[in-house]
């Protein structure tokens, strides 16, 4: 039986399912953190969540509002300094999955979180890099979660903050980036994966109730659909229950739901 659910819940559940049990995951704040914790509370109890502020093996009881919430430190196996997190743990090659959000994404899963418009005179000044450039390059694999619209999935980025597949094909390998790059992009409409050769993102499963026209109308480039494009499995009752309980606990603790950023 499937309960009624929102498109945001579908997105979070679909993203959570992508995280394997026991994976060592470097978690971005906001939507990635929600999905990673949902995974930890459902099928992936042994996933190791690492936050860039220093907690390794964080098991927060509520979603963190900031990347360095005290609850992350209190529930972690250990807390190390910020240089250590980036030097020994990320650059050291110990991260299986980097879980990232993005302001904008292009067809080759390159990420912009820096500026919209010219760098010197931006139309919109975004927060900037954080840990993402090195997460996207050094994690063995990358998952990206983003709400889909023509403003977020764009034809051309004004700035590449974090690298996906550059201009496609073997450009990433040629540039010498250690990790293999994005393996999936999870949106509120569908799941996109890079084509094995061109590395252009293509729709591999469509969330229930969404049609191709909605996806085309919410993408800034001519989006392709995989030849065997399926339907995403809807959220199971248990997944929804755990997600809603988590959000309720978070709202009770912070007054907000924790993935506002």
């Amino acid at each position: 039986m499937t309960a009624a659910y929102t498109s945001d819940e579908m997105m979070t559940v679909a993203a959570a399912r992508m995280l394997r049990n026991s994976a060592v995951c470097f978690v971005g704040i906001g939507l990635p953190s929600t999905a990673a914790n949902l995974a930890r509370l459902t099928h992936a109890p042994d996933a190791v969540l690492i936050y860039e502020s220093g907690p390794i093996g964080a098991k927060p009881s509520v979603l963190p509002l900031s990347i360095g919430d005290g609850n992350l430190a209190e529930t972690a196996d250990t807390v190390v300094s910020t240089p250590e997190i980036f030097r020994y743990w990320l650059q050291g090659g110990r991260i299986d999955v980097g879980f990232l959000g993005a302001a904008q994404l292009d067809r080759f899963a390159n990420i912009n979180t820096t500026v919209v418009g010219p760098y010197k005179k931006p139309k919109v000044r975004l927060p900037g890099a954080g840990g993402a450039p090195e997460i996207s390059s050094s994690a063995k694999e990358v998952l990206i979660i983003i709400k889909q619209s023509k403003r977020t999935l764009v034809d051309k980025l004004d700035f590449i903050t974090s690298v996906g597949f550059l201009n496609g094909g073997d450009a990433r390998e040629k540039a010498g980036l250690p990790g293999k790059g994005p393996v999936a992009v999870i949106t509120d409409l569908c799941i996109l994966c890079p084509h094995p050769e061109t590395r252009e993102l293509e729709v591999t499963t469509i969330h229930p109730g969404v049609d191709r026209g909605m996806i085309i109308g919410s993408t800034g480039w001519q989006i392709r659909f995989a030849s065997e494009c399926g339907v995403t499995e809807p959220p199971r009752a248990q997944e929804l229950q755990v997600l809603r309980d988590l959000k309720e606990r978070t709202a009770a603790a912070h007054g907000v739901q924790g993935d506002a950023a």
């Binding site: 450039p133 090195e134 050094s138 590449i160």
Partner: peptide, 9 residues
């Protein structure tokens, strides 16, 4: 550091 490769920084 091993960083910035391919980005616009």
């Amino acid at each position: 550091l091993r960083g910035y490769k391919g980005s616009d920084f």
